[in-house]
Design a binder for these strands. Sequence first.
RNA 1: GGAGAGUUGGCUGAGUGGUCGAAAGCGCCUCCCUGCUAAGGAGGUAACUGGGUAACUGGUUCGAGGGUUCGAAUCCCUCACUCUCCGCCA
Length: 416
Amino acid sequence: MLDIKLLRDDIDRIKIELEKRGYSLDVKKFKLLDSDRKLLQVKVEDFQSQRKKLSEEFGKLKSSGDDTTNLKVRIDEINNDLKKASNELDKILESLNIFLLDIPNIPHSTCPEGVDETDNIVIKKYGSVNSERKEDHLSITNEIDTDMATKIAGPRFAVLKGDMAKLQRALISLMLDIAIKNGYQEYYVPFMANKDSLTGVGQLPKFEEDLFKTTDGLYLIPTAEVPLTNIFRGTTINHNDLPIKVTAHTPCFRSEAGSYGRDTKGLIRQHQFEKIELMQVCHPNQSMDDLEGLLNNAKEILDLLELPYQVIELCSGDLGFSSCKTYDIEVWMPGQNKYREISSCSNFSDFQARRSNIKFKDENNKKMLAHTINGSGLALGRTLIALIENNYDSDKKLISIPKALQKYFDKDYINI
RNA sequence: GGAGAGUUGGCUGAGUGGUCGAAAGCGCCUCCCUGCUAAGGAGGUAACUGGGUAACUGGUUCGAGGGUUCGAAUCCCUCACUCUCCGCCA
């Protein structure tokens, strides 16, 4: 959520900023809503003030045994007017809130301008692509079974067997250990979250169709960002403790509404996938530097896994709803002959903090909104694909396991 | 699942219809005294928010929401959460 004061004081600039990410701010509507709000609020508070005074008087009359009927008539009138006005005010406030919740974050000044993903900028490529290898993970191993998953659950699920299941488990351990080494505290969190938590990170109310909702009103988390960020909802942190770094391994559940027909084969796009999430609460002055640090934490995993990848910076038009700046890490996938997203590292500035009421006390003991940043470190399913496809030697019929992972996997290759 | 107790300011905790945004204590801040330290004394100290260039001034908030009443921290209803005991389980 944006600061309503920004809209009041500087709406023309905000409109231009939001234009960059393809959001058209209805300036007229806001001005109308807010001026109505102002009028009504002053009116309501005036009525309240009058009632307060008269009620006090009423009490005095009553206790001295005087007649109160005249006064009661006046109070009743005021109460009537008050009720009308405050009902109107409630409606305006509700509309205003809906209006605000719908507005995405403002792109950061360093965010490159652009319309869609074709305008994203490749920052740097790492490692070298082996063009010999182009086989798809599903054709390499039969230990990833989507047919079985379809029987058990439906499309867009997968069953991992034997070495594949173990490989994923090894990756989880490696990634968590690296995160801990980098100063993140490990958490185990609920895989379901309530409405407030999802509204706090910006997932609701706008993107409900992307989520799975349970019969009693909870949602399956689409990312550990939800529980991790909400650890801090409604709390105030001492500035000395910033940044706070947390991590968790969780499954993620996404309905993938609107992606019918896209990436239907294999592990690429699933209703359920595993992910290690890195999340930080930062000082506003530090959050951009901290984002670079978080990006490095994610890159470190890919370096350790010896996988070729590139870092891209999303242009303003491709930015997620809550983000003001995002780097994507894309890993080389031989089966698709292209780079695919394996981590997305974003700075949300105070956007989530305002929705979630995450504050910190600064040097002068003043409470201010903190900044939140997060990114994957990494998405497990896609890491698995990259590892299988990049490391598969079709002559020797084996998948080699990178050195850093061997102590977690116990073997240095998988026989096919 | 059954029974009971609770939820008040930074903290502890009083408050059963108006004089209560709220006693007292702790903590914190300012000042005084004291040649260190310890102790003592005086005063101050909730958050959010509206209007106003400002001085200033208004409103809301005692777990959440609704109700009764001229008036609610206080009475009634619903819900959430916490704790204790019993039962059941991983």
